[in-house]
Design a protein around this nucleic acid. Structure first.
Lengths: 192, 192
DNA sequence: GACACCTTACTGACCAGTAAGTAGAGTCGC
DNA sequence: GCGACTCTACTTACTGGTCAGTAAGGTGTC
Protein backbone atom coordinates (compact mmCIF):
# COMPACT_ATOMS: atom_id res chain seq x y z
CA UNK A 1 0.00 0.00 0.00
CA UNK A 2 1.25 3.43 -0.87
CA UNK A 3 1.82 5.96 1.85
CA UNK A 4 -0.92 8.59 1.84
CA UNK A 5 1.59 11.20 0.76
CA UNK A 6 1.77 10.23 -2.89
CA UNK A 7 4.31 12.96 -3.46
CA UNK A 8 6.99 10.33 -3.99
CA UNK A 9 8.73 11.62 -7.01
CA UNK A 10 11.01 9.26 -8.83
CA UNK A 11 14.61 10.23 -9.07
CA UNK A 12 14.55 10.41 -12.86
CA UNK A 13 11.44 12.52 -12.89
CA UNK A 14 13.02 15.04 -10.56
CA UNK A 15 16.24 15.09 -12.57
CA UNK A 16 14.26 15.72 -15.73
CA UNK A 17 12.48 18.65 -14.11
CA UNK A 18 15.75 20.09 -12.80
CA UNK A 19 17.44 19.88 -16.17
CA UNK A 20 14.40 21.21 -17.99
CA UNK A 21 14.27 24.13 -15.59
CA UNK A 22 17.89 25.06 -16.18
CA UNK A 23 17.44 24.73 -19.94
CA UNK A 24 14.27 26.80 -19.99
CA UNK A 25 15.73 29.64 -17.97
CA UNK A 26 18.86 29.87 -20.09
CA UNK A 27 17.59 28.95 -23.57
CA UNK A 28 13.82 29.29 -23.39
CA UNK A 29 11.07 26.70 -23.57
CA UNK A 30 10.95 26.39 -27.35
CA UNK A 31 14.71 26.25 -27.68
CA UNK A 32 15.37 23.08 -25.72
CA UNK A 33 14.45 19.57 -26.80
CA UNK A 34 14.00 16.21 -25.13
CA UNK A 35 17.37 15.34 -26.64
CA UNK A 36 19.09 17.99 -24.54
CA UNK A 37 17.71 16.39 -21.41
CA UNK A 38 18.11 12.73 -22.33
CA UNK A 39 21.71 13.16 -23.45
CA UNK A 40 22.66 14.87 -20.21
CA UNK A 41 20.77 12.31 -18.16
CA UNK A 42 22.10 9.25 -19.96
CA UNK A 43 18.68 7.91 -20.84
CA UNK A 44 16.73 7.60 -24.07
CA UNK A 45 14.34 10.17 -25.38
CA UNK A 46 11.35 7.93 -24.80
CA UNK A 47 12.14 7.74 -21.09
CA UNK A 48 11.26 11.41 -20.83
CA UNK A 49 8.08 10.87 -22.80
CA UNK A 50 7.21 8.19 -20.26
CA UNK A 51 7.25 10.75 -17.45
CA UNK A 52 5.98 13.67 -19.53
CA UNK A 53 4.08 12.38 -22.60
CA UNK A 54 3.90 15.82 -24.24
CA UNK A 55 6.38 18.62 -23.92
CA UNK A 56 3.59 20.82 -22.63
CA UNK A 57 3.13 18.33 -19.74
CA UNK A 58 6.73 18.97 -18.82
CA UNK A 59 6.18 22.71 -19.15
CA UNK A 60 3.09 22.70 -16.97
CA UNK A 61 4.80 20.56 -14.32
CA UNK A 62 7.69 23.00 -14.30
CA UNK A 63 5.51 26.03 -13.74
CA UNK A 64 3.42 24.22 -11.13
CA UNK A 65 6.62 23.45 -9.26
CA UNK A 66 7.55 27.13 -9.49
CA UNK A 67 4.23 28.11 -7.97
CA UNK A 68 4.60 25.65 -5.09
CA UNK A 69 8.20 26.69 -4.50
CA UNK A 70 7.34 30.37 -4.63
CA UNK A 71 4.51 29.96 -2.13
CA UNK A 72 6.80 28.07 0.23
CA UNK A 73 9.36 30.84 -0.29
CA UNK A 74 6.96 33.64 0.60
CA UNK A 75 5.58 31.73 3.58
CA UNK A 76 9.10 31.20 4.92
CA UNK A 77 9.70 34.94 4.62
CA UNK A 78 6.38 35.93 6.14
CA UNK A 79 7.86 37.01 9.48
CA UNK A 80 10.53 39.25 7.99
CA UNK A 81 10.22 43.00 7.73
CA UNK A 82 9.22 44.46 4.34
CA UNK A 83 12.76 45.73 3.81
CA UNK A 84 14.20 42.30 4.46
CA UNK A 85 11.61 40.72 2.17
CA UNK A 86 12.62 43.05 -0.61
CA UNK A 87 16.21 41.94 -0.17
CA UNK A 88 15.07 38.31 -0.38
CA UNK A 89 13.31 39.17 -3.61
CA UNK A 90 16.56 40.68 -4.85
CA UNK A 91 18.54 37.61 -3.77
CA UNK A 92 16.24 35.49 -5.88
CA UNK A 93 17.20 37.58 -8.88
CA UNK A 94 20.89 37.39 -7.97
CA UNK A 95 20.66 33.62 -7.96
CA UNK A 96 19.23 33.56 -11.47
CA UNK A 97 21.84 36.01 -12.64
CA UNK A 98 24.66 33.90 -11.21
CA UNK A 99 23.61 31.03 -13.44
CA UNK A 100 23.22 33.16 -16.55
CA UNK A 101 19.49 32.70 -16.31
CA UNK A 102 16.55 35.07 -16.40
CA UNK A 103 13.43 34.83 -14.32
CA UNK A 104 10.80 32.28 -15.38
CA UNK A 105 8.09 34.87 -15.90
CA UNK A 106 10.44 36.73 -18.22
CA UNK A 107 11.08 33.88 -20.57
CA UNK A 108 7.53 32.56 -20.40
CA UNK A 109 5.93 35.90 -21.15
CA UNK A 110 8.34 36.51 -24.01
CA UNK A 111 7.44 33.17 -25.57
CA UNK A 112 3.80 33.34 -24.55
CA UNK A 113 2.30 33.45 -28.05
CA UNK A 114 3.91 30.16 -28.98
CA UNK A 115 3.10 28.28 -25.77
CA UNK A 116 0.34 25.64 -25.60
CA UNK A 117 -2.85 26.73 -23.85
CA UNK A 118 -2.32 24.78 -20.64
CA UNK A 119 1.09 26.33 -20.15
CA UNK A 120 -0.30 29.78 -20.82
CA UNK A 121 -2.88 29.39 -18.09
CA UNK A 122 -0.32 28.10 -15.62
CA UNK A 123 2.04 30.93 -16.48
CA UNK A 124 -0.72 33.44 -15.85
CA UNK A 125 -1.22 32.03 -12.35
CA UNK A 126 2.50 32.15 -11.62
CA UNK A 127 2.87 35.73 -12.79
CA UNK A 128 -0.11 36.71 -10.67
CA UNK A 129 1.63 35.22 -7.62
CA UNK A 130 4.85 37.13 -8.20
CA UNK A 131 3.07 40.39 -8.92
CA UNK A 132 0.96 39.97 -5.82
CA UNK A 133 3.99 39.46 -3.63
CA UNK A 134 5.77 42.52 -4.96
CA UNK A 135 2.69 44.64 -4.32
CA UNK A 136 2.38 43.11 -0.86
CA UNK A 137 5.93 43.98 0.11
CA UNK A 138 5.67 47.61 -0.85
CA UNK A 139 2.18 47.92 0.67
CA UNK A 140 3.33 46.59 4.00
CA UNK A 141 6.49 48.65 3.69
CA UNK A 142 4.46 51.83 3.37
CA UNK A 143 2.06 50.78 6.13
CA UNK A 144 5.06 50.21 8.39
CA UNK A 145 6.43 53.62 7.47
CA UNK A 146 9.72 52.30 6.10
CA UNK A 147 8.95 52.70 2.41
CA UNK A 148 7.81 55.88 0.73
CA UNK A 149 6.47 56.27 -2.78
CA UNK A 150 3.63 58.01 -4.61
CA UNK A 151 0.65 56.22 -6.13
CA UNK A 152 -0.76 52.82 -5.29
CA UNK A 153 1.01 49.76 -3.89
CA UNK A 154 -0.12 47.79 -6.95
CA UNK A 155 1.44 50.33 -9.28
CA UNK A 156 4.67 50.43 -7.34
CA UNK A 157 4.72 46.64 -7.07
CA UNK A 158 4.31 46.35 -10.82
CA UNK A 159 7.22 48.72 -11.38
CA UNK A 160 9.42 46.75 -9.00
CA UNK A 161 8.44 43.43 -10.57
CA UNK A 162 8.71 44.63 -14.16
CA UNK A 163 11.99 46.40 -13.50
CA UNK A 164 13.53 43.33 -11.92
CA UNK A 165 12.35 41.13 -14.77
CA UNK A 166 13.75 43.59 -17.28
CA UNK A 167 16.95 44.03 -15.30
CA UNK A 168 17.72 40.30 -15.42
CA UNK A 169 17.42 40.50 -19.20
CA UNK A 170 19.53 43.65 -19.34
CA UNK A 171 22.15 42.01 -17.16
CA UNK A 172 22.92 39.61 -20.00
CA UNK A 173 24.62 42.52 -21.72
CA UNK A 174 25.89 44.50 -18.79
CA UNK A 175 26.90 42.76 -15.59
CA UNK A 176 26.27 45.85 -13.51
CA UNK A 177 22.75 46.55 -14.71
CA UNK A 178 21.15 44.28 -12.14
CA UNK A 179 23.04 45.92 -9.26
CA UNK A 180 22.16 49.36 -10.62
CA UNK A 181 18.45 48.59 -10.82
CA UNK A 182 18.37 47.04 -7.35
CA UNK A 183 20.10 50.08 -5.89
CA UNK A 184 17.79 52.47 -7.68
CA UNK A 185 14.70 50.62 -6.46
CA UNK A 186 15.97 50.85 -2.89
CA UNK A 187 16.50 54.56 -3.36
CA UNK A 188 13.07 55.05 -4.92
CA UNK A 189 11.45 53.24 -2.02
CA UNK A 190 13.46 55.36 0.38
CA UNK A 191 14.73 52.38 2.34
CA UNK A 192 18.44 52.37 3.17
CA UNK B 1 23.12 54.74 -64.80
CA UNK B 2 22.05 54.14 -61.25
CA UNK B 3 21.28 57.07 -59.01
CA UNK B 4 24.06 57.65 -56.52
CA UNK B 5 21.73 56.71 -53.69
CA UNK B 6 22.02 52.96 -53.96
CA UNK B 7 19.68 52.56 -51.03
CA UNK B 8 17.01 51.25 -53.41
CA UNK B 9 15.55 48.38 -51.52
CA UNK B 10 13.49 45.94 -53.50
CA UNK B 11 9.86 45.66 -52.62
CA UNK B 12 10.13 42.00 -51.69
CA UNK B 13 13.10 42.57 -49.45
CA UNK B 14 11.24 45.23 -47.52
CA UNK B 15 8.15 43.07 -47.24
CA UNK B 16 10.26 40.22 -45.89
CA UNK B 17 11.75 42.50 -43.25
CA UNK B 18 8.34 43.85 -42.29
CA UNK B 19 6.83 40.39 -41.91
CA UNK B 20 9.89 39.07 -40.08
CA UNK B 21 9.70 41.98 -37.69
CA UNK B 22 6.06 41.35 -36.85
CA UNK B 23 6.74 37.65 -36.41
CA UNK B 24 9.77 38.20 -34.22
CA UNK B 25 8.02 40.64 -31.90
CA UNK B 26 5.01 38.39 -31.43
CA UNK B 27 6.50 34.89 -31.58
CA UNK B 28 10.23 35.37 -31.08
CA UNK B 29 13.15 34.90 -33.43
CA UNK B 30 13.50 31.14 -32.99
CA UNK B 31 9.80 30.54 -33.26
CA UNK B 32 9.23 31.79 -36.79
CA UNK B 33 10.42 30.12 -39.96
CA UNK B 34 11.00 31.14 -43.55
CA UNK B 35 7.78 29.26 -44.28
CA UNK B 36 5.78 31.73 -42.21
CA UNK B 37 7.10 34.56 -44.32
CA UNK B 38 7.01 32.92 -47.73
CA UNK B 39 3.45 31.67 -47.28
CA UNK B 40 2.22 35.12 -46.29
CA UNK B 41 4.15 36.75 -49.11
CA UNK B 42 3.11 34.32 -51.82
CA UNK B 43 6.67 33.42 -52.80
CA UNK B 44 8.81 30.33 -52.35
CA UNK B 45 11.08 29.70 -49.43
CA UNK B 46 14.19 30.02 -51.57
CA UNK B 47 13.21 33.56 -52.51
CA UNK B 48 13.83 34.59 -48.94
CA UNK B 49 17.14 32.76 -48.91
CA UNK B 50 18.04 34.80 -51.98
CA UNK B 51 17.67 38.05 -50.04
CA UNK B 52 18.87 36.66 -46.70
CA UNK B 53 21.00 33.55 -47.24
CA UNK B 54 21.04 32.62 -43.56
CA UNK B 55 18.36 33.31 -41.01
CA UNK B 56 20.93 35.19 -38.96
CA UNK B 57 21.40 37.56 -41.94
CA UNK B 58 17.72 38.36 -41.68
CA UNK B 59 18.04 38.80 -37.94
CA UNK B 60 21.00 41.13 -38.21
CA UNK B 61 19.29 43.19 -40.91
CA UNK B 62 16.27 43.47 -38.68
CA UNK B 63 18.19 44.78 -35.71
CA UNK B 64 20.25 47.12 -37.89
CA UNK B 65 17.02 48.59 -39.18
CA UNK B 66 15.86 49.01 -35.59
CA UNK B 67 19.03 50.92 -34.74
CA UNK B 68 18.65 53.24 -37.74
CA UNK B 69 14.97 53.77 -37.00
CA UNK B 70 15.59 54.42 -33.34
CA UNK B 71 18.30 56.97 -34.09
CA UNK B 72 16.01 58.75 -36.51
CA UNK B 73 13.30 58.62 -33.84
CA UNK B 74 15.46 60.20 -31.15
CA UNK B 75 16.79 62.85 -33.53
CA UNK B 76 13.26 63.82 -34.49
CA UNK B 77 12.42 64.19 -30.80
CA UNK B 78 15.57 66.11 -29.95
CA UNK B 79 13.83 69.47 -29.62
CA UNK B 80 11.11 68.27 -27.28
CA UNK B 81 11.18 68.75 -23.53
CA UNK B 82 12.27 65.78 -21.39
CA UNK B 83 8.69 65.26 -20.24
CA UNK B 84 7.45 65.14 -23.80
CA UNK B 85 10.26 62.79 -24.76
CA UNK B 86 9.27 60.44 -21.98
CA UNK B 87 5.74 60.42 -23.35
CA UNK B 88 7.11 59.59 -26.80
CA UNK B 89 9.00 56.72 -25.22
CA UNK B 90 5.72 55.56 -23.70
CA UNK B 91 3.90 55.91 -27.01
CA UNK B 92 6.46 53.59 -28.58
CA UNK B 93 5.53 50.98 -25.99
CA UNK B 94 1.81 51.59 -26.55
CA UNK B 95 2.30 50.89 -30.23
CA UNK B 96 3.91 47.54 -29.54
CA UNK B 97 1.21 46.68 -27.05
CA UNK B 98 -1.53 47.49 -29.54
CA UNK B 99 -0.17 44.84 -31.87
CA UNK B 100 0.27 42.22 -29.15
CA UNK B 101 3.99 42.63 -29.45
CA UNK B 102 6.75 43.17 -26.94
CA UNK B 103 9.77 45.39 -27.40
CA UNK B 104 12.62 44.02 -29.55
CA UNK B 105 15.17 44.20 -26.77
CA UNK B 106 12.84 42.13 -24.62
CA UNK B 107 12.51 39.23 -26.98
CA UNK B 108 16.13 39.38 -28.11
CA UNK B 109 17.54 39.38 -24.60
CA UNK B 110 15.25 36.55 -23.58
CA UNK B 111 16.45 34.44 -26.49
CA UNK B 112 20.02 35.70 -26.32
CA UNK B 113 21.68 32.42 -25.45
CA UNK B 114 20.35 30.77 -28.59
CA UNK B 115 21.11 33.59 -31.01
CA UNK B 116 24.02 33.44 -33.47
CA UNK B 117 27.04 35.57 -32.58
CA UNK B 118 26.47 38.30 -35.15
CA UNK B 119 22.93 38.87 -33.91
CA UNK B 120 24.12 38.96 -30.33
CA UNK B 121 26.58 41.74 -31.11
CA UNK B 122 23.98 43.72 -33.00
CA UNK B 123 21.49 43.28 -30.18
CA UNK B 124 24.03 44.57 -27.71
CA UNK B 125 24.43 47.76 -29.75
CA UNK B 126 20.67 48.24 -29.96
CA UNK B 127 20.13 47.76 -26.24
CA UNK B 128 22.93 50.24 -25.54
CA UNK B 129 21.12 52.81 -27.71
CA UNK B 130 17.81 52.41 -25.88
CA UNK B 131 19.40 52.44 -22.45
CA UNK B 132 21.35 55.52 -23.35
CA UNK B 133 18.28 57.38 -24.44
CA UNK B 134 16.35 56.54 -21.28
CA UNK B 135 19.25 57.78 -19.16
CA UNK B 136 19.47 60.90 -21.32
CA UNK B 137 15.81 61.78 -20.85
CA UNK B 138 15.89 61.55 -17.08
CA UNK B 139 19.26 63.33 -16.88
CA UNK B 140 18.00 66.26 -18.91
CA UNK B 141 14.74 66.14 -16.98
CA UNK B 142 16.57 66.57 -13.70
CA UNK B 143 18.87 69.24 -15.13
CA UNK B 144 15.80 71.16 -16.31
CA UNK B 145 14.25 70.80 -12.85
CA UNK B 146 11.13 68.99 -14.07
CA UNK B 147 12.08 65.50 -12.91
CA UNK B 148 13.10 64.54 -9.41
CA UNK B 149 14.60 61.26 -8.27
CA UNK B 150 17.41 59.99 -6.06
CA UNK B 151 20.62 58.36 -7.34
CA UNK B 152 22.18 58.63 -10.76
CA UNK B 153 20.57 59.30 -14.13
CA UNK B 154 21.98 56.00 -15.40
CA UNK B 155 20.39 54.08 -12.54
CA UNK B 156 17.04 55.80 -13.00
CA UNK B 157 17.26 55.34 -16.77
CA UNK B 158 17.87 51.63 -16.30
CA UNK B 159 14.86 51.34 -14.03
CA UNK B 160 12.67 53.15 -16.55
CA UNK B 161 13.95 51.05 -19.43
CA UNK B 162 13.81 47.73 -17.58
CA UNK B 163 10.38 48.50 -16.14
CA UNK B 164 8.97 49.36 -19.57
CA UNK B 165 10.45 46.22 -21.10
CA UNK B 166 9.02 44.14 -18.27
CA UNK B 167 5.70 45.95 -18.41
CA UNK B 168 5.19 45.06 -22.06
CA UNK B 169 5.68 41.42 -21.13
CA UNK B 170 3.37 41.74 -18.12
CA UNK B 171 0.75 43.39 -20.31
CA UNK B 172 0.31 40.10 -22.14
CA UNK B 173 -1.49 38.85 -19.05
CA UNK B 174 -3.04 42.02 -17.77
CA UNK B 175 -4.11 44.75 -20.15
CA UNK B 176 -3.80 47.42 -17.49
CA UNK B 177 -0.29 46.61 -16.36
CA UNK B 178 1.31 48.82 -19.01
CA UNK B 179 -0.84 51.81 -18.06
CA UNK B 180 -0.12 51.21 -14.39
CA UNK B 181 3.64 51.11 -14.89
CA UNK B 182 3.63 54.22 -17.09
CA UNK B 183 1.62 56.10 -14.49
CA UNK B 184 3.87 54.97 -11.66
CA UNK B 185 7.01 56.02 -13.55
CA UNK B 186 5.52 59.47 -14.09
CA UNK B 187 4.76 59.68 -10.39
CA UNK B 188 8.24 58.48 -9.43
CA UNK B 189 9.80 61.10 -11.67
CA UNK B 190 7.53 63.69 -10.17
CA UNK B 191 6.32 64.94 -13.52
CA UNK B 192 2.58 65.39 -13.83
C1' DG C 1 1.56 -11.63 -12.67
C1' DA C 2 0.85 -6.85 -12.42
C1' DC C 3 3.11 -2.74 -12.42
C1' DA C 4 6.82 0.94 -12.84
C1' DC C 5 10.35 2.25 -15.63
C1' DC C 6 12.65 1.98 -18.99
C1' DT C 7 14.46 0.34 -24.09
C1' DT C 8 14.67 -0.08 -29.39
C1' DA C 9 12.81 1.31 -33.46
C1' DC C 10 10.11 4.05 -35.90
C1' DT C 11 6.96 7.98 -38.16
C1' DG C 12 5.85 12.25 -40.09
C1' DA C 13 6.42 17.05 -39.71
C1' DC C 14 9.16 20.84 -40.03
C1' DC C 15 13.39 23.15 -40.41
C1' DA C 16 17.51 25.87 -42.62
C1' DG C 17 20.05 25.75 -46.39
C1' DT C 18 21.67 24.54 -51.39
C1' DA C 19 22.01 23.62 -56.37
C1' DA C 20 20.53 24.32 -60.73
C1' DG C 21 17.55 26.32 -63.79
C1' DT C 22 14.63 30.29 -65.79
C1' DA C 23 12.16 34.59 -67.09
C1' DG C 24 12.64 39.20 -67.94
C1' DA C 25 14.84 43.54 -68.05
C1' DG C 26 18.79 46.22 -69.08
C1' DT C 27 23.44 46.82 -71.45
C1' DC C 28 26.76 46.53 -74.99
C1' DG C 29 28.99 46.10 -79.43
C1' DC C 30 28.22 46.72 -84.01
C1' DG D 1 17.90 47.89 -84.12
C1' DC D 2 19.43 43.35 -83.31
C1' DG D 3 21.82 39.43 -81.35
C1' DA D 4 24.90 38.26 -77.35
C1' DC D 5 25.59 38.83 -72.82
C1' DT D 6 24.70 39.79 -67.93
C1' DC D 7 22.26 40.67 -63.85
C1' DT D 8 18.36 40.47 -60.67
C1' DA D 9 14.91 38.01 -58.76
C1' DC D 10 13.09 34.49 -58.46
C1' DT D 11 11.56 29.08 -59.28
C1' DT D 12 11.62 23.79 -58.63
C1' DA D 13 13.62 20.16 -56.43
C1' DC D 14 16.29 18.46 -53.11
C1' DT D 15 19.35 17.26 -48.72
C1' DG D 16 20.33 16.31 -44.11
C1' DG D 17 19.19 17.38 -39.64
C1' DT D 18 16.15 17.91 -35.71
C1' DC D 19 11.93 17.66 -33.61
C1' DA D 20 7.83 15.69 -30.78
C1' DG D 21 5.54 11.79 -30.33
C1' DT D 22 4.24 6.53 -30.58
C1' DA D 23 4.21 1.47 -30.49
C1' DA D 24 5.82 -2.56 -28.82
C1' DG D 25 8.91 -5.04 -26.19
C1' DG D 26 12.05 -6.02 -22.12
C1' DT D 27 13.37 -6.22 -17.18
C1' DG D 28 13.38 -6.00 -12.42
C1' DT D 29 10.44 -5.52 -8.12
C1' DC D 30 6.57 -6.08 -5.06
Amino acid sequence: MKPETDARITDTRKKILDLAEALMLSRGFNAFSYQHISAELGVRNAAIHYHFPKKSDLGVALIERYCRRFERFTQAQAELSPGEQLEKYFELADRYFGQQQICPSGILSAELQTLPDDMRLQTQAFVALMRGWAADIVRRGRDAGVMHYPGTAEGMGDVVFAAMQGALQLARFDQQALQAVKLQIRLLLGCQ
